[in-house]
Design a protein around this nucleic acid. Structure first.
Lengths: 123, 123
DNA sequence: CATGAATGTTAGTTTATGCTAACATTGTTA
DNA sequence: TAACAATGTTAGCATAAACTAACATTCATG
């Protein structure tokens, strides 16, 4: 799965935590890309059976999609927590940077970040 | 300047620290991309007057290119140092991850990383 | 010094990610 | 309920970054 498609799945899940219906427009606003860009990401997510959507209808996560999205968000939040709690980065920058880092950081660095945060949070 | 072009400039500088002559082949080996990919990056670097190269000849940094390259490498090393000294990531992963992070990290996160390393190195 | 190996270049293709313009559908409201 | 606003879709284009295949040049050595 590519970065843009993963971002889209992640956003679908994040929105789904607050409201039942998810629309192209909301994703387009959240991710700050145009609606056609969202539509093409959705097409791929449908191909991979991670979401379902009737034409012109609402977007829903499948069971697989939900599982995948949870993992992505978990990683995102882990990095964000590190940036905010350890490095004292502002929430905005932390969110933006975590959104990039989540896509390529080595598993080694990822686990070192997690470990470091556990040990040093609150110091 | 895009990521791939910046990577190329950075590698030219790194190689230049060890030997006088820099060739397409060395860059292609170092960056693990094919020679045509290097050639197209070099073309852009020439356009921006950051390097000079005669056809089929050696690659040299211009004054501007040297300045730019030094800044890029400084950033790279700063991130790498953080990953190694603070998070205790292996050199290989640190190098690989720093090479990605250097391209998009917010200036805020960058300066927080630098600050944190200064304060905590050796603890 | 001729030839083959190494290196450099060009042209063209592919994939990822974005965009705009044009059009289709749906929803709202005067 | 007709018309317009909002939303969704399609088609086509642009750029970045990679690739392969084919070809050009240079170098090294038999």
């Amino acid at each position: 799965m590519t970065k843009s498609i993963e971002d889209c799945l992640e956003s679908i899940y994040m929105i789904s935590l607050e409201k039942r219906s998810i629309r192209v427009k909301e994703l387009s606003d959240k991710l700050k890309v145009t609606k056609p860009s969202i539509v093409s990401a959705l097409k791929e997510l449908k191909n991979e059976n991670l979401i379902s959507q009737e034409k012109y209808g609402y977007i829903e996560l499948t069971e697989d999609g939900l599982k995948e999205a949870k993992e992505i968000l978990k990683k995102h939040n882990m990095i964000k927590e590190f940036l905010i709690d350890i490095l004292e980065v502002s929430e905005d920058s932390a969110d933006k940077d975590a959104c990039q880092m989540e896509h390529f950081l080595s598993s080694e660095t990822l686990s070192k970040i997690e470990e470091f945060t556990k040990k040093n949070r609150g110091h």
